[in-house]
Design a protein around this nucleic acid. Structure first.
Lengths: 340, 340
DNA sequence: TCGCTTTATGACATCGATGACATTTGTTAT
DNA sequence: ATAACAAATGTCATCGATGTCATAAAGCGA
């Protein structure tokens, strides 16, 4: 790596002069400047960002650990966070954190050091991975959690009310006359799966209806493929449901695909609703009724929390959870139960 | 900002000891370690990444400028690059570059300095934005281009053969008996749009068929919404096509949706093929026949080029273009022309 | 040409953390 | 109890760039 000294030597000037050429070119005589520039070109010099920053005062990008960037949920947040960072004039460095790697500790360490990251953002399910959070505390790193399943007193978090949203969806289906409603759960490791499921039951309880039989709950994992199996299971029941609430949009899209294959019309024969308002929700046919999470709002809040942490660093021991609102988006995939 | 010295003072030890607690905790007596950790907690200390890196030797993350992270194409590359970076032990910092901002120069400058980035990756259409490339050269920044429309002698690039792939798709449709094939073009600013379109024509020429009438070319922009309009246009023709080749998968998904709405079966009444093998291609019904780009291969090559640049920095003036292979993926959305 | 102001350049300290080496403290074996 | 060695901690220099202040060179009026 060539340094400012190499350049200064070749150009026959002092390092400071090279620095001036870089930062305040007008303060250097034209002839000298050209010599220095020539030297820089010849050595393919580019300044060391760390040194510069050390001198000028620290900046640091926000780190994002992603488990599965292909998942609609994570990529949606990823985008929202990028936007929020841009608005706030911050930068984000992304690292893949693939679950059960034996060397995950070393990788996180390396990320904090070499990735020049101090503040981390954790999405589900990482935000519930206790050993990771412990490591971060040891390292003096900070983190903001998005949708953790339980509040952690050490880290601020931003959440939405999954249970209430799921309940709202079911109540909406009730209002369309559905009473036999299937639910495809999410990945068992996500607290959201449990919350959404319990929201379903809560809706039944609140209406004074008997809880749905267990056959109406099929297990999924938030992914398209598993969604297909789950949909097949539900639709093969002797008495299939008239509506299916999938734990996320990708799963709902799978349900729609299976329904089409079986010649069922949506929403005529089957109503399908998803959760997340992922891009896929408006790209499939018919477009999915779903719960829209305020991704951008949440992302902004997260970035803001990181900032706040920087400022009032003295006032420690004060972390909180922010609840953000959701919205039921009614599209084409849901309708009144057929009279047949 | 609290430094290691503040901590050392409060804990009553030397800075070096604090450093040890951080980096080799085992070499510090338990009692001391706890005192230091308490001090760190009390001061909400976190180490300065710049200083650490300066001392340890320079690392720098690779910068990625994204115009539209919501686009399937960009997000697909984004993911592939993340994976490739992980494999190579590098980090990636992402910045949104929203087209025509008046202050884009300042933002790029800031990205290079504060974002601690030296090497940049440019995707279409940024990789063809001449003023940006010029700025990068001035700043001594390096860049690798993905799928630029023309080779730039200053930057290495990685490309695929869009024209040949498009031709291959059309020849495949020919082989199924289609002769009346509609094409929805991509965004006019992307060279890929032009190449894919000319691949279509090339296929006709190669077969000695008359070139398709202009009514069979509808203009799109790679996005779902515009794809709907274009599909409506094509399918409303007095003599509609029996197959539609959309310039990307999102557009193809839109075609599928419109076809469903009109009661056309796929591939019975209409074959639909896309391009990119985006996630949506296998999430819609029926799953789309498409061209798979070797995203990961390309990403690996890009990261490797960045590395190579670091090593043989002396040997400048040597940049090249790498052509990567593509593959036709046949799924459910294409079939023989109906005998009607 | 001399003294004085500007302009151009250089020497040195500094940012915060860590490596190399020095020193102190603790432990074990005799 | 003491040499001998290991463990724990400290001192100082260093990474690369830039701010501060000092110095050298250039410009300029009389």
């Amino acid at each position: 790596m060539t340094t400012i000294y190499d350049v200064s030597k070749l150009a026959g000037v002092s390092a400071k002069t090279v620095s001036r050429v870089l930062n305040e070119p007008d303060r250097v005589k034209a002839a000298t400047r050209e010599q220095v520039q020539a030297a820089m070109k010849a050595l393919d010099y580019s300044p060391n960002a760390s040194a510069r920053q050390l001198r000028l005062g620290g900046f640091s990008s926000i780190g994002l650990l992603l488990e599965d960037p292909a998942s609609g949920y994570q990529s949606r947040f990823h985008q929202a966070l990028l936007t929020a960072c841009m608005e706030a004039g911050k930068y984000m460095t992304v690292e893949l954190f693939e679950g059960v790697m034996p060397d995950w500790k070393a990788r996180v360490d390396r990320f904090l050091t070499e990735g020049r990251v101090r503040d981390l953002i954790l999405l589900p399910t990482l935000c519930d991975f206790a050993p990771l959070k412990e490591l971060l505390r040891e390292r003096g790193a900070r983190a903001v959690l998005i949708a953790p399943s339980v509040h952690d007193p050490h880290f601020p978090s931003v959440v939405m009310d999954d249970r209430a949203a799921a309940r709202q969806i079911i109540e909406y289906l009730f209002s369309l006359g559905h009473t036999r409603i299937g639910h495809i759960t999410g990945h068992p490791d996500h607290s959201a799966s449990i919350l959404r499921r319990s929201g379903v039951i809560e809706a039944y309880d609140a209406r004074g209806l008997p809880r749905p039989k267990s056959e109406l709950f099929a297990s999924g994992d938030f992914m398209f493929k598993k969604g297909i199996e789950a949909a097949e299971t539900l639709l093969s029941l002797p008495e299939p449901p008239t509506a299916i609430f999938a734990a996320n949009d990708e799963t709902a899209a799978a349900v729609a695909m299976v329904a089409h294959r079986r010649g069922l019309s949506i929403p005529g024969d089957l109503s399908v609703v998803g959760f997340d308002d992922a891009p896929i929700a408006s790209a499939v046919w018919p477009q999915l009724t779903t719960i829209a999470q305020p991704y951008l709002e949440m992302a902004r809040k997260v970035v803001h929390l990181v900032d706040a942490w920087d400022q009032q660093s003295t006032q420690s021991g004060f972390v909180s959870t922010y609840l953000t609102p959701h919205e039921l988006v009614i599209r084409e995939s849901s309708g009144p139960v057929s009279k047949a």
